[in-house]
């Protein structure tokens, strides 16, 4: 993951999206979350290649509309594909079926290749749509929207705290790493390196814990009784209705094409 982040970037705000500028960014966050979920379920449920290609097309259109920097987002996408590619290249050789070609005497089946392509298309379409619809929100807005969607308050509060402290603790981690570097530490394979990284994690754990104690004390000082007001009010405007209708039509179209292909 370090390959997609340089040290100065803040992980959660580094998507580079200019938030709230695109028309997609003005759609009600609740609608965007539900749309991303519905899109994921429909895409995973569909299996025909033309339908999946159409789904990927919708996802790419959403990406364009979200004004996320396309290059960087697609690079992140490719990092993920690297993870799964190794699993996918095995499929043609392990799924039984009509042999298409053979490599070093191993027959590759058409069915396996089709399955691998389907997984690749599904995974990329779903994650692109998710990043375009939800990943462009402020993480805090996502928390409020999830609360409005009846996610338990405790889980939302946990999410908010996590979002708040990821950047802080990352800086803490980088400070510790810099201190190690100043003392001549160089990562390598070996007991010394692993022990040093282990101590680094232990220290991070201790500092995080002590920080959280200070946070709780400061919050109690200000009258914290275990509840954080979740203030954001969302308004379902006309453009949200239009977006909902349009997106539902697209999803219905995907399902209809899938059924038509299954019948033929």
């Amino acid at each position: 993951m370090s390959s997609v982040l340089n040290t100065l970037e803040k992980p959660l705000t580094a998507t580079g999206g200019r938030r709230q500028i695109s028309w997609l960014g003005r759609i009600d966050p609740r609608v965007r979350i539900v749309a991303a979920l519905a899109f994921a379920v429909v895409t995973v449920a569909c299996g025909r290649l033309p339908v999946l290609l159409a789904a990927l097309g919708i996802a790419v259109a959403l990406l364009a509309a979200s004004r996320l920097p396309a290059g960087r987002t697609l690079r992140r996408m490719a990092t993920m594909d690297g993870f799964i590619l190794i699993l996918l290249v095995m499929l043609p050789f392990t799924v039984p079926g009509e042999p298409m070609f053979s490599l070093w005497g191993l027959p590759a089946s058409r069915e396996g290749l089709v399955q691998a392509v389907e997984i690749l298309l599904t995974a990329n379409a779903v994650i692109l749509a998710l990043m375009a619809l939800v990943g462009t929100m402020e993480p805090v807005t996502m928390g409020h929207a999830l609360h409005a969607l009846r996610v338990p308050a405790a889980l939302v509060h946990l999410l908010m705290f996590t979002v708040r402290y990821i950047d802080v603790l990352r800086e803490e981690y980088l400070r510790l790493r810099q201190a190690m570097k100043a003392r001549g530490f160089r990562p390598s394979t070996g007991w010394h390196c692993y022990r040093s990284f282990g101590y680094l994690l232990g220290m991070l754990l201790v500092r995080s814990m002590e920080r959280s104690e200070r946070i709780l004390d400061a919050m109690k000082c200000r009258g914290f009784t275990g509840r954080i007001p979740l203030l954001d009010r969302f308004a379902f405007a006309r453009r949200d209705a239009v977006f909902t209708a349009g997106f539902s039509l697209l999803l219905a179209g995907l399902i209809a094409t899938e059924i038509a292909h299954a019948a033929s």
Partner: peptide, 21 residues
């Protein structure tokens, strides 16, 4: 919740750490 949230953030940060093998 604050403790759990901070630790959750800490483990998120740990998952960004690459160790040579």
């Amino acid at each position: 919740i604050p403790v759990a949230g901070v630790l959750s953030a800490m483990f998120f940060v740990a998952s960004l750490v690459h160790v040579p093998v």
